[in-house]
Amino acid sequence: MAAGGDHGSPDSYRSPLASRYASPEMCFVFSDRYKFRTWRQLWLWLAEAEQTLGLPITDEQIQEMKSNLENIDFKMAAEEEKRLRHDVMAHVHTFGHCCPKAAGIIHLGATSCYVGDNTDLIILRNALDLLLPKLARVISRLADFAKERASLPTLGFTHFQPAQLTTVGKRCCLWIQDLCMDLQNLKRVRDDLRFRGVKGTTGTQASFLQLFEGDDHKVEQLDKMVTEKAGFKRAFIITGQTYTRKVDIEVLSVLASLGASVHKICTDIRLLANLKEMEEPFEKQQIGSSAMPYKRNPMRSERCCSLARHLMTLVMDPLQTASVQWFERTLDDSANRRICLAEAFLTADTILNTLQNISEGLVVYPKVIERRIRQELPFMATENIIMAMVKAGGSRQDCHEKIRVLSQQAASVVKQEGGDNDLIERIQVDAYFSPIHSQLDHLLDPSSFTGRASQQVQRFLEEEVYPLLKPYESVMKVKAELCL
């Protein structure tokens, strides 16, 4: 049975990233139509530049190519590739079939990587351009969430054990800070992308030097003109047959890092959902379990974690691919890159769409948070109580021993009897502590235990987050809708 299948058929496997999760716009960027249309555009740009620099290419040939950029006979191309065992030459023939007058000058002087690699770089750039505003929107939604809850005390956790208090907004800023680093890295790697350009079979530009009869300047002009037509500021000066596969490492490393950030955020949300302090959106008709109707599973956060793990592992592909590119190139890269580049971007696209949807509907339960604080705060307040007693004339050592005994009794009630923490009640009825009984409410005010959390939130948002989001103001209103 021949390899390949009808990918629109229910009898043929289709990647869930495309069929179930990723956005239509990201799927289109990695589609065959987008790819092969870009090949034709690159052939047109090459012909236009070659004509401008004096090669015998007519206006009629150029116009014929322009008129057929979208006229792609995919069936013919597939048949040609089956016959020739070469995808680029299959599309040269297919393009030439609908451009008979231009057929002889299509791909003039070029090698397969002229269309293959340059198209990949265009796709990487455009895919990054799709991700950047999506990530900015996630940051914006979380920034709104953090600002609104900047002063809401909550129990902090280290080692997932109760620690000092923080605020809900401050905790959210930990998430935002990681995503801001990801946004900066995505922008950097996007701006650092260079075009492969017009380089020939081993990167020496020998074929173009021959076409222009040894004119170095025209060869350099050709490279520059096509690079500018493709919208790049610069091209690699040095290439082998391909652009260095280190570029793929750079791009997928940034995406993998984004995956790590999203995994951490969504894990926190899942843990908070278990504590009943916070939940992701839950639709009115949504079913959490087929057997347990009360369940409210954090399905979206779980999906993000599941896909983020996949995204983090994909960076190993370009690392290994770059390491086995012998001399000017081997074909070890080809099949692998067809999979890992598309999957990385479709996965990143999915987790950003999902995280935006989550961040637009996060639900906080202040009463649950308050109750958990009441359970733990008495123990945390013991040092403040000791200091207040010393100020009232008591002995630190005597007070410490009193607190120690009462704390152990209260802990026994919590752990052995399943009761509430009654340390404060014990202190309130103990005559030894009568000098500070009137101060206990103040000493137990949760806001006095959150330090500068709310001020940190305000400063972080104003100095770091809002300036970073400013270039994306025009796209901030787009909502994230999930079908599944």
Rank of each mutant, 00 (worst) to 15 (best):
G5Q: 09
G5A: 13
D6W: 11
G8T: 15
S9N: 13
P10W: 12
D11R: 14
R14Q: 13
R14K: 15
R14Y: 13
A18R: 15
E25G: 09
F30Y: 14
S31I: 00
Y34P: 00
K35I: 09
T38F: 12
Q51W: 01
L53V: 10
G54L: 05
P56M: 08
P56Y: 03
I57A: 07
E60N: 08
Q61S: 06
Q61H: 07
I62D: 00
E64K: 07
E64S: 07
N71R: 07
I72Q: 07
I72E: 05
A77L: 09
A78T: 11
E80K: 12
E80T: 12
E80F: 07
E81Y: 06
D87C: 06
M89S: 04
M89K: 00
A90G: 14
V92S: 08
V92E: 12
T94V: 15
K101N: 01
A102V: 12
A103K: 10
L108D: 00
G109I: 00
A110Q: 01
A110D: 09
T111E: 01
L121H: 05
L121Q: 09
I123V: 15
I123C: 13
L132D: 11
P133W: 11
L135I: 13
A136D: 04
V138L: 15
L142Y: 00
L142R: 06
A146G: 03
E148F: 13
G156C: 06
L165W: 02
T167G: 01
C173H: 09
L174P: 15
L174C: 15
W175E: 10
D178R: 13
D182C: 01
Q184I: 14
Q184G: 11
N185D: 01
L186Q: 06
R190G: 09
D192Y: 13
F195M: 15
V198D: 05
G200A: 15
T201F: 01
G203F: 03
D215S: 11
H217G: 11
L222K: 03
L222W: 03
D223N: 09
K224N: 10
M225H: 09
V226Q: 04
K229G: 01
A230M: 01
G231C: 07
I238N: 11
V247D: 14
V251L: 15
S253K: 08
S253A: 10
S253F: 12
A256R: 00
L258T: 09
V262W: 06
H263Y: 05
I265D: 01
I265F: 11
I265V: 10
I269H: 03
I269R: 01
E277D: 01
M278Q: 05
M278K: 01
E280I: 00
Q285W: 05
S289N: 02
S290Q: 01
M292V: 02
P293R: 01
P293F: 05
Y294N: 04
N297I: 00
C304L: 14
C304Y: 01
S306E: 01
A308N: 03
L314D: 02
L319H: 00
A322Q: 07
S323G: 07
V324H: 12
Q325W: 04
W326T: 07
T330W: 01
D332M: 01
S334W: 02
R337P: 00
R337L: 02
L341Y: 11
L341W: 14
A344D: 02
I351P: 01
N353D: 11
T354I: 13
N357D: 09
I358H: 00
V363Y: 04
V364Y: 01
Y365E: 14
P366K: 05
P366C: 04
K367A: 12
E370C: 09
R374Y: 08
R374L: 07
E376D: 15
L377E: 05
N384D: 05
I385D: 06
I386T: 10
A388E: 08
M389R: 05
V390T: 04
K391E: 13
Q397L: 06
H400S: 05
I403Q: 02
R404H: 06
V405R: 12
S407V: 03
S407N: 05
A411V: 10
V413P: 05
V414Y: 04
G418N: 00
G419D: 03
E425H: 13
I427P: 08
Q428G: 15
D430V: 10
S434H: 06
P435S: 10
I436N: 05
I436Q: 05
S438G: 10
D441T: 07
P446W: 01
R452M: 12
A453W: 00
Q455W: 06
V457F: 04
R459H: 13
L461P: 03
L461D: 05
E462T: 12
V465Q: 15
V465K: 13
P471G: 13
P471Y: 14
E473T: 12
E473P: 14
M476R: 14
K477G: 12
K477F: 07
K479D: 08
L482R: 11
